[in-house]
Design a protein around this nucleic acid. Sequence first.
DNA 1: TTGCTTGACTTTTTT
DNA 2: AGTCAAGCAA
Length: 749
Amino acid sequence: MIVAGAGSGKTKVLTTRIAHLMAKGVDSFNILALTFTNKAAAEMKERVEHILKSREARNLYIGTFHSVFARILRSEAHRIGYPNSFTIYDTDDAKSVVKAVTGELNLDVQHYKPNAVYNRISGAKNALVNAKEYMADYGIQQEDMRANRPMIGHIYEAYARRCFKNGAMDFDDLLFKFYELLKHHPEVLHKYQHKFKYIMIDEYQDTNPAQYEIIKLLGAAHENVCVVGDDAQSIYSFRGATIQNILQFQKDYEDAHVIKLEQNYRCTQNILAIANEVIKQNKGQIPKTLFTENETGEKIRLVRTMTDNDEGKFIADAIQELRLRNHYVNKDFAILYRTNAQSRSFEESLRRHSIPYTIYGGISFYQRKEIKDYIAYLRLIVNNQDEEALKRIINYPIRGIGKTSVDRAIMHANEQNISMWQVLESAAMFGFKAGTLQSIEEFVLMIRSFRSMLETKNAYDIAFHVGKQTSFVKELFNDKSTEGVQRYENVQELLNSIKEFVETPTDEENGEVGDKSLAAYLQQIVLLTDSDQKDPDADTVKLMTIHAAKGLEYPVVFVGGLEEGLFPNQMALNTREELEEERRLFYVAVTRAKGRLHLTYANTRYRFGQLVQSDASRFISEIPEQYVDQSFAGGGVKNQSASRWGQGSAFERMQRGFASGSPKEPEKTAVTSLIQNTRPKEVTHTASENFTPSDPATLQEGMRVEHQKFGFGTVLKLEGSAHNPVATIQFEQNGEKKIMLNYAKLMIV
DNA sequence: TTGCTTGACTTTTTT
DNA sequence: AGTCAAGCAA
């Protein structure tokens, strides 16, 4: 176990060890290295290759826990009842399933919020607790009772059953199911124990119990496990990571060597000093003091601004000035923050200053609607049990299979205990209306025809064909609004990425060589993160959350939003443990800086669309003044937390009023009621005595028609799909209106 | 069944 | 502020 402080060269140690093992003759097939991001994995692979100057490194199993296990599950999943081409649900899919089964259990979705329930389930899985155990566990049940949500266990069970039925695993399942596979299939365990004779794990402080148990199983045969971690940088406990894994390590592996790396090669003395000072406030740490032989460096700059926009402006100004005076380039700068929502003000100010930037995190490429829709088609083709994908596209583009029909299909599926797809395949047996039935049959035929390509065509050909055959890509193309053009470009980019996937030669030669199937592609992309797709060397200022910045370093770092309630975050002020994790987060943020560090905070900031006032973060007051340059902007450290408006001022009372979310009573003032009444009044028309509706199919552009309510008019345009024809009519009394011909009654005059 | 309006809700961090 | 789902008119 290597306990390595920030900037002490963890990754270098790991890569060197791998290279060393291989130089000593260890077969690269026998080495497994697990990281937390694909990016870290790619980097490690590259570095090993660089050291060895050979392509031998390509046989290494280096990847994230999730991607490595997913890959193994791709060839072993059938043993635990899953199709090998199982779908991986991302968080959105998973929450959607939670919501669906909650509803089916007749529980109130308002009360059993999918988000909260999903987090609960996720937590259980990360602790290797299955639904049955969840319901039987007294402690867990007490917790749920106290939260007044006693039925979460049942939701968990239904959720797990549904995922299984859909042939789908969520992120946590990739660990949980892999664990179960090893646990219950000795021959599989044996196989991988002997394959992975050397196991290495980066960022060990962020592993959860599931990962821990898996490693214990895999490593049991050879007991050659090398972990690298830093308890002071443990920042993922919210997803089940526990520091216990580090503390427990020596007990589990009796002859484990512990090596401490305490020299920092990254930061200036000043930066390291404040990092050490702040982290000292935490009680639950392995005591160690990082030192550095680097120069003293500049003092830390602490800046207070009036508003969040001013904060953004200050940073943009500072970047401009530092670039000019010190010959920094854009990529030397990083702006770090606690929450993704903070990126907006920085983004705006950088754009105003024409400083190129890259934002990491937020909505990733694959989460965009048009991409998810496209991918849903591909998912359904590969795995037609995938109900989430099916629901997403069954009526996109609109083909007249609406909510009622979908609900009915789901009901039948549940009743018959078959998949929704199977219901659609034999739709004739379930009494759909004739029109709907025809639409369903056409849909089923189309998906089947796509599916028949799976055997013979590669991922790109299939995807291209799908785009051509369905009209939704054409729809995107025809949308010439800015967003529409962007969406179309995104779809093109998706196709490019598939093409690239197909054409890149596979690195591994582990029996899965050249797995260019659609299933392989789909399983790969869902595990990609934003950081994996963006080029870190591009000459742009980088914006990201502190979590995303872990493992990275920049010559100049700005940490924004150092305010009580934001950082430390309001949600993390309940227990000492939570607060200490926030402090570790601050530690991580600070130690990203090599040369210069700026800490900024704003007096007021918009949150939730409302102006809130906040005090300086407590972390600021934990920094000894000697390291801080306060002359910069904004003013001194002392008394900054005191309100500028004084206690009980009108402003403060106003703030409290807003903040406490006083019940909104939309008083109808004269003005609002006036506005509401400005809608053009329809001129009522009494239908002619001989009014008899004509067949809408006979309608032609330019015809004169009568509408029962709107009166006489001329047909300007006929549009809409065959299922839902729409006519634009210029009425003599009521102006231009769009009329749905399926419902409105028109008489041709 | 569809498309628009309204109101509710959001923000912690991520594989 | 911005997104999303439920509710309602056509």
